[in-house]
Amino acid sequence: MCRWLAYAGEPLQPSTLILETKHSLVAQSLNSPLGFETVNGDGFGVGWYGKDAAPGTPPAMFHSIEPAWHDENLRELTQAIESPLFLAHVRAAAAPPIQQTNCHPFRHGHWLFMHNGGLAHFSRLRRDLMLAVDPELFPHIRGTTDSEVLFHLAVTYGLQEDPIRGLGRAIRHVEKTADGFGIRDVVQGTFAVSDGRTLWAFRYSTVGRSRTLFHSADMATLQETYPHNEKLHRFGAKARVVVSEPLSDLPGAFIEVPESTVTVLDPDDFHTEPFLAD
């Protein structure tokens, strides 16, 4: 469906990961070996938090319907800013049209959300799912994607108080609604959520065959293992990235996130825990 990455750590130019690695996000937009689609050219988006922004400050965003490899503004922008936490996404449209309001990440207040995957038979479920969204949130749904509806459902179910529980409750609501239509295997995906301080990255599907997801290994360990790799020494000790597929071929650099798991990164901790695991 799509490819994405999320970074948390010391302030970094987003271009370092989006453009400059061997298998960068832009490279994956042209050729994604692990993706459901090889080419992801139906628009892209970047959302980032300022390096000196106060807690609770809304992130900035840039969306375009251009293919990521074709947009000169993407290179200019990602080289001009530094951010301690940013999300980036390249899109392969399934059914919703190619338009800026359908590009990820999505924003609500100081929260960002993005998704790779889909909700099966969303056109049949769309009305019921949208009616379950808090009426105060409903006007903020600007596009036509299942991902944006799921995000607002998660906010409705308490994502801002507890992101893991909020997204979990939203997904269970989708599955229950789909059961009423006789739709099986409805949720497929990997998801990223952030409030500007913490990053939550989820891998989950109803049938346990989710899209790929990886997190980077501990940076200090990598730098010690590969002392002559100059690119690794551009990163700070707290740097971590979560990606749809590895950004390099360096052995040990990326670790696969298990099924039904959430990876949590904040300035003081990194851990994984089960997510909706039966």
Rank of each mutant, 00 (worst) to 15 (best):
L12G: 02
L12S: 01
S15G: 03
S15W: 00
T16Q: 13
T16W: 05
L17S: 02
I18T: 05
L19E: 09
L19F: 05
L19T: 03
K22G: 01
K22V: 05
H23S: 15
L25W: 03
L25T: 04
L25N: 00
Q28I: 02
S29V: 07
L30G: 10
S32D: 15
P33M: 09
P33R: 08
P33G: 06
P33Y: 07
P33L: 09
L34D: 13
L34F: 09
L34M: 15
F36I: 07
E37S: 12
E37M: 12
T38N: 11
V39E: 05
V39Q: 11
V39S: 03
G41A: 15
G43R: 04
G43V: 03
F44D: 01
F44P: 00
F44I: 03
G45A: 10
G45D: 11
V46W: 11
V46S: 05
G47M: 07
G47D: 05
W48N: 10
Y49M: 13
Y49A: 10
Y49D: 09
G50C: 11
K51L: 14
D52Y: 12
D52M: 10
D52R: 12
D52Q: 14
A53I: 07
A53K: 08
A54G: 02
P55T: 12
P58Y: 10
P58G: 07
